[in-house]
């Protein structure tokens, strides 16, 4: 029945070149894995022999110290405030930089440098930005807000630009032919089209910002990170347990809220 001779032609097969390319891809992946595992000193037997010590570590976390809850809760709220303020500042900067970085809205000598700037912002580690702003404006949550704002603009500006680049051209041409100016075309031709995308990107970035800002206190830039280092260095594991629980609850709450809102956007 299903004999290809009936068709009188051979089935298409991958060329030698395609086969070689596929095989070298697999080899490359294996080499890469070996290189990384050796270099990073990955030894699974260490994990096995050390497993009993995990029990001791977890045992010290119990029972959580409820007395620390109020302190921890206050710091968590401050962390949340840093994340919200940082995200709001970042939205303003990202809208502007996103418009300038969109290839369909600005000439190449504008959008290319702005794309590089956004890349550079993404490249600087958050903790380094936080250290820098602590040096400039002193200790407290404010340098944390600035660090979050700068760091997340690198990503949010890029996402906004990509959303705007994906906007349909037709409405822009239509508004242009109705005599709309550049700003009017962006305001009426682009923003209404991409609004749900921008909102989705922003909420996602806010989730990341909240988790990122947990560590800011490590360098004195406000929030819960300060207590993370305080308790952990003081071996107050019962308080660390409380801290972990509170953080876990808030992180999950923020994520659920964000997911619920994003699902409603259309």
């Amino acid at each position: 029945m299903a004999d290809r001779r009936e068709l009188g032609l051979a089935y298409p097969r991958p060329t030698l070149q395609e086969s070689v390319a596929r095989a070298s891809g697999v080899v490359l992946l294996v080499v890469l894995a070996a290189w990384a595992l050796r270099g990073a000193d990955v030894q699974l037997d260490k994990l096995q022999t050390g497993l009993p010590r995990l029990g001791a570590f977890l045992g010290r976390l119990f029972p959580p110290d409820i007395d620390a809850a109020t302190t921890v809760f206050g710091a968590t709220v401050e962390t949340l405030q840093i994340a919200v303020a940082g995200t709001l500042l970042s939205i303003a900067a990202s809208v502007l930089l996103g418009i300038l970085a969109a290839t369909n809205l600005t000439p190449v000598w504008v959008h290319q440098p702005v794309k590089w700037l956004l890349g550079a912002l993404r490249g600087i580690p958050l903790i380094l930005l936080a250290l820098m702003f602590v040096t400039i404006v002193g200790l407290g949550p404010f340098p944390g807000v600035l660090a979050i704002a700068f760091h997340s603009t690198g990503m949010l500006g890029k996402f906004y630009a990509e959303a705007m680049e994906g906007a349909r051209r037709g409405p822009l041409e239509a508004l242009d032919s109705a005599g709309a100016s550049w700003w009017q075309r962006i305001r009426f031709g682009i923003l209404p089209q991409v609004a749900p995308d921008l909102a989705r990107d922003t909420l996602f970035r806010f989730e990341l910002n909240f988790r990122d800002s947990l560590v800011l206190g490590l360098v004195g830039a406000g929030g819960i990170g300060f207590y993370i280092q305080l308790y952990a260095r003081g071996f107050q594991y019962a308080k660390v347990a409380t801290l972990t629980i509170v953080v876990l609850i808030v992180v999950i709450a923020v994520e659920q809220l964000s997911v619920a809102v994003r699902a409603r956007l259309r």
């Binding site: 349909r168 037709g170 409405p171 041409e173 239509a174 009426f188 031709g189 209404p192 089209q193 609004a195 749900p196």
Partner: peptide
């Protein structure tokens, strides 16, 4: 326009 070129969310 052939494809109407409207802002569909508006």
């Amino acid at each position: 326009f052939q494809d109407f070129a409207l802002v569909e969310r508006a």
